[in-house]
Design a protein around this nucleic acid. Sequence first.
RNA 1: GGCGCGUUCGUCUAGCGGCCUAGGACGCUGCCCUCUCAAGGCAGAGAUCACGGGUUCAAAUCCCGUACGCGCCA
Length: 493
Amino acid sequence: MSEKIRVRFAPSPTGSLHIGGARTALFNWLFAKRYGGTCVLRIEDTDEVRSTPETVDQILHSLSWLGLAWDEGPVLGSDGTVNLAGEGPFAPYHQMAEERRAHYAKYAAQLLDGGKAYKCWCTKEDIEVRRVTNPELRGYDGRCRRLSDEERKKNEGRPFSIRFAMPFEGTTVVEDLIRGNVAFENNLLQDLVIQKTSGGPTYNFACVVDDHLMDITHVIRGDDHLSNTPSQIRLYSALGWEPPKFGHLSMIHGPDGKKLSKRHGAASAGEYRELGFLPETVRNYLALLGWSTSDSQQVFAEGELESKFSIEGCSKSPSRFDREKLEWMNGEYLRAKTPEEMLRLSRPFLDAAQIEASDEALLPLLAMEREKFHLLTDVPKRLDFFFKDVEYDEKSVNKVLKKEGVDAILEAAAPMLEALAEWTEAKLEEAIRGFATEKGWKMGQVFHPIRVATSGRTDGPTLFGMLEHLGKDRVLARIAEARRRFCREGQSA
RNA sequence: GGCGCGUUCGUCUAGCGGCCUAGGACGCUGCCCUCUCAAGGCAGAGAUCACGGGUUCAAAUCCCGUACGCGCCA
């Protein structure tokens, strides 16, 4: 195809970027990257949902966090302010803008003049009454389309909407890139309102006008729009325009198979950032929801999604959002990070957990625990006892410290540790193993109590490395504290 | 209600008429490694390919119908 590809992502500014919206944005972006096209971001605020700088700001931030850069559309200034109109040859990129509204009115008038649309004086109430009294009626009965000139004249001056006159015969075929040809009977298409009584355009009309004026070549969107597509195609044709190519993506559902919503936990892309997910994880995971390669590849290196994405790989059936797989994938990406990268990424989460620690202190710990993190929020969770007072986990204490004979082991271990001249991982291992052997205790009998006494938990880093980083003073103090608090038996008051 | 879309392990999916005794991934179970937790390795359970009819020498794959789910319009 010789024409330059232009795709768009057109969210409604109803708040933060929904997971489904993020997926649509991602697929458009991947499509553009794959074929060297241009990405346009357009805010769809026709339905009296005013876009505010705040809502656009949220959407822009989420897209930018996900690493999806748009070539044209509203932009976020370096000072944090939003330029709603946006940058690019077709600005402004939101429909409530005066310049855009003038276009919609112009083309609606053109259709009206050409006899392809007509004025409708029926009110919402009229239509509702007719619907209730005549249950056979499917939608609008088209009565204003059949009005005589005389009757029309009588109505002039009263508020009206403009309806598009759908053909009565034939079929309209949507040649969908993902679902193949889908045919719709024209006589079942409603005479849809293109201009409301208020003078503003309806969604379906504004969408068509904008996509045409912005030279959009491919419309990739959720399949909730598939049923609107034949009507849109009729509009293109009535305006004498070539419609873009369409591709309708299957929807994303929650774990229960119902539409994904707040009930299912985090529903907006931004929330995943706060939960400790990496943008590359969310991108990779979302890509796999509705798209796959023929070898079912799971994890993609940087740049690989862009080079492998294809519209043919898109699936027709809906998918469910699986948080467990998302977490696994995040672990995969986290494990691939260097300690330095981990440090930079986890800083905000350490700060939030009020853990103050120097880079020098953190780096070896991050290296030591590197393969254990699934979320960035796991970093403060796993490292807190290196920087704050130990919080003894009740289960761990009961299981290990309150066992008979443990106090004697800790009592004997303390002076042995105190006497250690060199406090290094290797020396600690040598000394503690030697100590256990000498006393006739099994390794685990000694290791576990020391672990729980010094970290407060049964799971943690490798014991000797942990002790080294904790330092002799803290290790001895914690052993003493643990004995005092949990090992009453065997104590001689 | 009308129209449209969809239906392969619990979940994401591969599959585009013979390579399928249906492959991979998450999760799950067991074993190995091992100072715990992970990670890793290995093994395993798990799908009568929604159901019923056709077409064909041969169907998860093509056609028709039914059911269920979802969407749009009302």
